[in-house]
């Protein structure tokens, strides 16, 4: 504050500058120079900040525009949705598309199926990934390293390559067209990522914490449950979100493995595109509704996600 005041004085009018006779003449240019530097620095910071905000806003528009366009399209009339050239805002706002989409047979059931499948898949992923990642990071064995690399390799296989065999396996196990079959299939997608994510979070937890817990009388599992898990709770939230999203948005396995009893909403959304046309309005309306739970979940767990994402960054 004092520096700022002094700087303001120094950079003042010649009359005010002249009102400080005690300052040696040689110092004045130096102070002025310092003041100018600080001002320049401030201005530089301000412009950097402005530039960052502009970039941030541009990125938000870039990422958010498709969703906004989808949202606006869901309120358009049929002819408006196919306008050439397209318009961003509806000329006439209507809820007809929502009525059509939600009134279509199978839509409410598909929502329930999506929720069931995503929950089971998320829990399965966490139940398997947390101990696996903990074991790999705490017991640094060769087999652990091979396992985690192998888990990564499974991410490199195109889903379509395993989709058809998986569908056949589920059918032969009598699980055809059930959410549990689809959940297991979805877990094959999210599990490798979950293990890798959880490993990085466990890596960030100092061993001393566990050792202290052990000294206080905790068993290894007790230390994991009472000390380590609370520390990585943000990471678990992040992993859960990713696993949930992977299942919630998955299309290919759902297409191959579901029929009457377990069809999820992504397949129902795709059903609006038929060989004979594309019902943009209803499709966008259902897609908008389907986005709501994910948006809410993300907002609800926002703090934990941010905390989880920065967990590795504060290590040491």
């Amino acid at each position: 504050m004092r520096v700022a005041e002094r700087t303001t004085h120094d950079a003042g009018t010649p009359a005010r500058a002249g009102a400080v006779p005690s300052v040696p003449a040689a110092v004045v240019p130096l102070r002025r120079r310092r003041g100018t530097n600080r001002e320049g620095l401030e201005a530089g910071r301000r412009s950097t900040r402005t530039l960052l905000w502009v970039l941030l806003a541009a990125a938000m528009v870039l990422y958010g525009f498709p969703f906004l366009y989808l949202l606006f399209t869901s309120f358009k009339t049929p002819i408006d949705t196919i306008a050439v050239p397209p318009t961003i805002l509806p000329k006439e706002w209507t809820l007809e598309n929502y009525a059509n989409a939600l009134g279509r047979s199978g839509v409410p059931a598909s929502f329930i199926n999506s929720i069931q499948t995503a929950i089971i898949s998320t829990v399965l992923s966490l139940v398997l990934a947390v101990p696996a990642a903990y074991g790999i990071t705490r017991y640094k064995t060769l087999s652990g390293r091979i396992f985690i690399m192998a888990a990564l390799v499974t991410r490199m296989v195109p889903p379509v390559a395993i989709g058809i065999p998986l569908a056949s396996m589920m059918a032969s196990m009598g699980l055809a067209d059930t959410p549990i079959a689809l959940s297991i299939a979805h877990t094959t997608i999210s599990l490798p990522l979950s293990i890798w994510l959880m490993s990085s979070f466990f890596e960030a937890v100092p061993k001393d914490l566990e050792e202290a817990a052990t000294v206080d009388g905790c068993s290894r599992l007790g230390a994991l449950w009472r000390v380590v898990i609370p520390v990585v709770s943000g990471g678990i939230a992040v992993t859960a979100i990713f696993a949930f999203l992977a299942s919630w948005n998955e299309f290919l396995f759902a297409l191959l493995m579901t029929a009457i009893r377990s069809q999820t909403t992504p397949v129902v959304i795709a059903n609006f595109q038929t060989q004979f046309g594309l019902d943009w309005g209803s499709m966008t309306a259902l897609a908008a509704v389907y986005s709501i739970p994910v948006i809410l979940l993300t907002l609800l767990l926002q703090r934990r996600i941010v905390a989880g994402m920065t967990l590795g960054a504060v290590k040491g």
Binding site: I119, D177, P179, S183, R261
Partner: peptide, 18 residues
């Protein structure tokens, strides 16, 4: 949630069994 989902997953919500 998982217990409920697992219990319900035997039949799903789309309709009768194949």
């Amino acid at each position: 949630c998982t217990a409920v989902a697992l219990a319900a997953s035997g039949c799903g919500a789309g309709g009768p069994a194949s």
